[in-house]
Design a protein around this nucleic acid. Structure first.
Lengths: 218, 218
DNA sequence: TCGAAGCTTAAACGATCGTATAAAGTATTC
DNA sequence: GAATACTTTATACGATCGTTTAAGCTTCGA
């Protein structure tokens, strides 16, 4: 238990916090790179330079450590996206800012998309709660911008699916795309090009949905 | 060793073939669902109803069985795409057919996108050879259709990346999208809507790249 | 300064992993 | 029908897994 809410930890807490943070970082990298099953508690503790038994002491189990790592990663991503969304601007500006923030965050935290993708592939039962906790507020915050397309909700869902897939594609298919294109798709320059492409894709898709509305309106 | 190339196997081969095929199918499902590390040889053999030692006898090792499974899945996908590409038609028709075939194949073989995604996440060293063997012929077959966009090769690469990501998105993010949209995104009806959306996305992107060429031509 | 509390350590436990081995079973050949 | 080749089986080996235990160390409060 913490002694208080102040920011000056005592000797115990300072040492403990360093251990916890080191284990979280090592675990994040390990889970992202090789997955939950292939990442051993011994390897994680070794990377963090601490004893494996500390995983049980500080987190309770490997599973609990994994949940903590996943929750932290999703929380950071969510906070960043909501912050980008809440800054003032036209709806179009804010949508573009959210998407750009998404891209920037994945580029700055390459473990994050891999963690999420692995959780989805593993049918992680936590994903249900995680989506509810982290994506829920984001989607709800986006709803004001979706007025006027209710009649084409299906088209909007298809577009969201495509945009999401396109957004994470460079990070998840980097080895494949790199070999096909003969270049690294994750350099800062490549990410910058990616950002511009995604932006035009958003406008293109948006215009297309609006045209559907106008042409098919009853 | 096979006694000949005929199609009437003797008793030994018939039994052996059944075992090999059963193990391959069980392994494909297991590797796709839980990943290479979490899929045990005992479980795979159990699902196939055979003795675990047969993995070593017929394939040599768990790793070799995995390579076989991955290679078979990629080969089937490649054959289907190349067949769709080689049927006559205008370039636009053939491109659309390839993409529709991709979507159909993933819908009919839900293990395939998961296998590929896991191999990419695991930085599977086989992926390099696999891309060279399977995607190489496909990309080479596509090259005749890419004439006239050389000046915007970077734009084309971005578009290919996005289309690929959009193509596999429903299969890889099904649990997430399903929860957000409140519906199953992998029903036949949903796949059909998806096919139409992707088709319009291809045309939209193609038109956009062509407009870039015309507006920026020197 | 001394006992208490919190943190860390080394060592080991039971379970499960991929793999190896030798014997048994089955179809083919002479 | 016996010898042979091929396939399958039960069993066990060594390694590694997550976890547990008990003892040692560090820091804090009285």
């Amino acid at each position: 238990m913490k002694t208080s809410e102040n920011d000056v930890p005592n000797g115990h807490e300072e040492r403990s916090d360093r251990t916890v943070q080191g284990l979280c970082e090592a675990a994040r990298t390990a889970f992202a790179r090789v997955g939950y099953a292939a990442a051993s508690v011994r390897d994680i503790a070794g990377s963090a330079g601490v004893n494996p038994a500390l995983v049980r002491y500080h987190f309770g189990s490997k599973e609990a450590l994994y949940r903590r790592v996943l929750d932290d990663a999703m929380g950071q991503l969510r906070d960043r996206l909501i912050a980008a969304l809440e800054r003032p601007g036209t709806p179009r500006q804010r949508i573009h800012r959210v998407i750009a923030s998404y891209l920037d965050h994945l580029a700055a935290n390459p473990d994050t998309p891999r963690l999420i993708q692995r959780a989805l592939l593993d049918h992680d039962p936590n994903i249900r709660q995680i989506v509810g906790t982290h994506h829920g507020p984001l989607v709800r915050a986006l709803e004001p911008f979706l007025e006027g397309v209710d009649a084409h909700r299906a088209d909007l869902e298809e577009a969201v699916t495509s945009l999401f897939g396109a957004l994470v594609a460079p990070f998840l298919y980097a080895p494949l795309l790199g070999q096909i294109f003969g270049r690294d798709v994750l350099t800062p320059e490549a990410i910058e090009r990616r950002r511009e492409h995604i932006a035009s894709l958003v406008d293109l898709t948006h215009a297309h949905i609006l045209s559907l509305r106008h042409s098919a309106a009853s």
